[in-house]
């Protein structure tokens, strides 16, 4: 299990997580683990009640089970998005049915986890979502030990500023946009050089290896999945 605590940019203000789950023992376990990580947790076990709570009081992040008494998880998400709520939402689903997950994402959820899941996985997803939320507010994105200032276009590492040329900066930004997810080489090429542009086969690989060298000892690694793409990982080794 990760021992990392919540990195909250609004220092001092505790982050509130709304947990909507009708299985009491699971909810209790999750709530305890999240509280140990320094989050405040509101636990609700009924779909209708959860919707009213989320629609009026909110919270910083919602973790919602799909199967609920009253409104189901997907319906809650759809209703919240319809009324303009932008709260980050992670869906929990018991079924490994791909279409169910897709329904949750289609309805406006940001992420999903299949039960049973590791607590480490859930906290990693929560961290990623809260980071994304904080990034939008401050313009400064953090991952591992580096800070990426989106307005000034600068990157600061643990040993001071890291000098990155334009393309490497764009590559880092592209990987950060999908942090924790694999980004295909084609997608990177499209982002860096424009869609459909002719790029030499190893241009992206070259950029990756240069960026990887500069990110050494920053708590961030670029991992390669051959045939699939690259993944920006801040999991401590």
């Amino acid at each position: 299990m990760l021992s990392k605590t919540c990195r909250n940019p609004n220092a001092g203000k505790q982050m509130r997580i709304v947990l909507v789950e009708d299985n009491e023992s699971l909810a209790q376990g999750v709530a305890n683990a999240l509280r140990d990580q320094g989050y405040a947790v509101d636990w609700l076990n009924d779909g209708d009640e959860a919707y009213r709570f989320l629609a009026s009081e909110g919270g910083d992040i919602a973790v919602i089970d799909i199967n609920l008494p009253g409104l189901n998880g997907v319906e809650i998400v759809r209703a919240l998005r319809k009324q303009g709520s932008g709260i980050p939402i992670i869906m929990l689903t018991a079924r490994s049915d791909l279409s169910d997950r897709v329904t949750g994402l289609d309805a406006g959820a940001d992420d999903y986890l299949v039960k049973p899941f590791d607590m480490a996985e859930l906290t990693a997803r929560i961290r990623a979502l809260s980071r994304r939320r904080a990034d939008i507010q401050t313009g400064i994105r953090e991952i591992g030990l580096i800070q990426f200032n989106q307005t000034a276009r600068t990157v600061i590492g643990p040993a001071g500023p890291i000098d990155l040329p334009r393309r490497e900066l764009a590559l880092l930004e592209c990987l950060m946009d999908h942090s924790g997810r694999i980004v295909s080489k084609e997608r990177i090429a499209d982002t860096l050089y424009g869609i459909g542009s002719e790029v030499e086969a190893n241009a992206v690989e070259l950029l990756i290896s240069r960026l990887r060298r500069k990110l050494a000892n920053t708590g961030v690694t670029i991992r390669t999945a051959r045939g699939l793409g690259y993944l920006l990982d801040d999991t401590p080794a």
Partner: peptide
């Protein structure tokens, strides 16, 4: 891969 690479597994696809 997104799960396994965190724990250091190398994944490739062809």
């Amino acid at each position: 891969a997104e799960q396994g690479m965190r724990s250091g597994i190398e994944v490739s696809f062809n």
